[in-house]
Amino acid sequence: MITRRHGLGFALAALTLPLQARAAEGGIRGLAGAGDALGEGPYWSPALKRLLWVNISGQTIYALDLKSGDIQTWKTPKPVCFLADRKSGGLIAGLSDGVYAFDPKAGTFTLLVRPETRDDTRLNDGKVDAKGRLWTGTMDTKWKEKVGAFYRVDADLKVTRADSPYLCANGPTFSPDGRTLWHAETYDKTVFAFDVAADGALSNKRVFVKFDGDMGSPDGMTTDAQGGVWIAHYGGGRVSRFKTDGTLDFSIALPATQITSLVFGGAALDHLYISSAAQFLPENAPDKAVAGTLFEVSPARLRGHAGLPATPFAG
Rank of each mutant, 00 (worst) to 15 (best):
P176L: 09
D188Y: 06
A232S: 12
K144I: 12
H305V: 03
Q72D: 12
Q258L: 13
A277F: 08
Q258W: 00
T223L: 11
P18W: 01
K288M: 12
W182F: 15
D245C: 12
S68P: 11
W143Q: 14
Y62I: 02
L31Q: 09
L294W: 12
L15D: 08
T76R: 07
S240Y: 02
Y166T: 04
Y151F: 15
R118C: 08
R301F: 02
A32E: 10
A184G: 02
D219H: 07
H305F: 15
G265Q: 10
L281N: 03
S217G: 05
A306G: 14
A253H: 13
G132C: 04
L19H: 06
N170Q: 07
G9N: 06
T247D: 07
G9A: 07
T222H: 01
S298P: 00
G132I: 04
P172R: 01
A169Y: 01
G266A: 08
K205V: 06
G33V: 08
G220N: 02
S240C: 14
R206N: 02
F264L: 15
T180I: 14
R122D: 11
L64G: 00
L95I: 07
S68E: 04
G39E: 11
M215C: 05
L112K: 13
T257S: 12
A256W: 07
S57Q: 12
L17V: 12
K146T: 08
S203C: 09
S275E: 02
R118L: 14
P46K: 00
T136L: 07
A37V: 07
D119P: 14
F150A: 04
R122V: 03
S203V: 01
G132H: 06
G27T: 06
H271C: 15
G266R: 13
T223E: 07
Q279F: 13
F280M: 15
